[in-house]
Simulated scan of single mutants.
Amino acid sequence: MALLHKYTQRFLLRIACIIVLCICSNVMAQEKKGLSEEEQLDRMLERYNERYMPKLLGFSAGYATPNVFDFSIFSILGAFPINITDGYRIHVGYDPLHLRVDDIGASDDALFAVSTWFLFNGIDDIANKITGSESEGPGILVLATLFIWCGNVYIPLVPGSWLGINDQNHFTTHVIQEGFHTRSFTYTNDLSLRFSAKPSSSGFFLDTGIRFEKNFAEDFKYRFFVQLGLFGSG
């Protein structure tokens, strides 16, 4: 009888061990499943956070109806992200070396953009000496002025940033050919849908959209445009 009781205890102990092991395995599986879901979320956010615009130089060429051609060397100052949430951000960049070819001729706005860069950097330096503060790189006065002149904002629409909305400003001048008068200045805003191949490495992008344009001597007009660009990784 005692022997039977001993075997019963062993049997019950084995059953208890099996139950404990099953519970532990189930808990571990749930923890593992939770980690995998968390990793998947992190990867999705990383795909949103891929850097779209590189710090290295890029080149773009565009055509706006009916008779305007554009050429730009962009991201000469680099582009930087602005975090909207932990998993989503927009990108701001510049393309100060811009050349426009139209009825008036070749533009000279790149010269003024570079001059503006040095001018406002000098103003920032003077302001820093007066206030006794020190800053690395261009100040907000430089960046805000350049953004109005030749800045752009890219808003990703999909994970990976390969498709998004690009809004770009250009202040185009023909002062060398036309002199200082209203016909010499044109302000454009390009709103486009941008497709980018390999947005975090070397690749290309294609824009198509509408250009809103105001020459200071003419009425407001709009044009349809396409643009193709090449860039290197940052």
Rank of each mutant, 00 (worst) to 15 (best):
T173M: 02
D167R: 11
V142M: 09
L111C: 07
I76E: 02
K221Y: 05
L77G: 08
I176V: 10
V142L: 06
E213K: 11
S72T: 12
L41A: 14
I165A: 00
Y7H: 14
I130E: 00
F69C: 05
L13W: 13
L163M: 06
R43I: 03
L12C: 11
P156L: 03
D190L: 09
Y222F: 11
T145A: 15
L191F: 11
I19H: 11
L230I: 04
D86A: 04
E136N: 05
V92I: 12
L228S: 03
G137Q: 04
T65M: 11
F216I: 01
S115K: 12
Y48V: 02
A217Q: 06
I19Q: 13
A197V: 04
G105E: 03
L119F: 10
I104V: 13
N128L: 15
L146C: 04
R10E: 15
L141N: 14
G232V: 05
I23C: 09
V114W: 09
D167Q: 15
A79M: 01
L99N: 02
M28H: 15
T145D: 09
K32Y: 12
V20P: 01
P138D: 15
R223K: 15
T188E: 15
G122Q: 11
L143R: 05
I176D: 03
M1Q: 10
E213L: 05
G122S: 15
A61G: 14
I15Y: 08
K33C: 13
F212A: 08
G132C: 01
N128P: 01
L41K: 14
A29T: 10
L230S: 04
E134P: 09
K33H: 11
T182C: 05
D124C: 04
D167F: 13
Q30S: 15
K33F: 14
L157M: 05
N49C: 12
V27M: 08
T131G: 08
V27F: 12
R10T: 11
L13H: 12
E37N: 13
F231V: 06
V153K: 05
G34H: 13
S184T: 02
T8Y: 09
K221C: 08
E37A: 12
F74M: 00
P138L: 14
E38S: 08
F112G: 06
F112N: 00
F69M: 15
R211Y: 07
S135K: 13
K55S: 14
R211M: 08
A29Y: 07
I176F: 08
L41E: 12
D95V: 00
G179Y: 00
A29C: 09
T182W: 09
P81L: 03
Q177T: 12
G62E: 01
G93M: 00
F216K: 13
P81H: 02
L3E: 11
Q40D: 14
K214G: 04
E38K: 13
S200T: 02
I90Y: 01
A64N: 05
E31K: 14
K214D: 03
C22R: 03
L41F: 10
M1P: 11
T131K: 12
D108T: 00
H170S: 12
R89Q: 10
G209N: 04
S25H: 07
H174D: 04
V92E: 00
F195N: 01
V142N: 05
I23A: 10
L21C: 07
S135T: 10
G203K: 00
I126N: 09
L56F: 12
E218H: 07
K33I: 08
S200W: 04
F205L: 01
V101M: 04
W149A: 11
N26D: 11
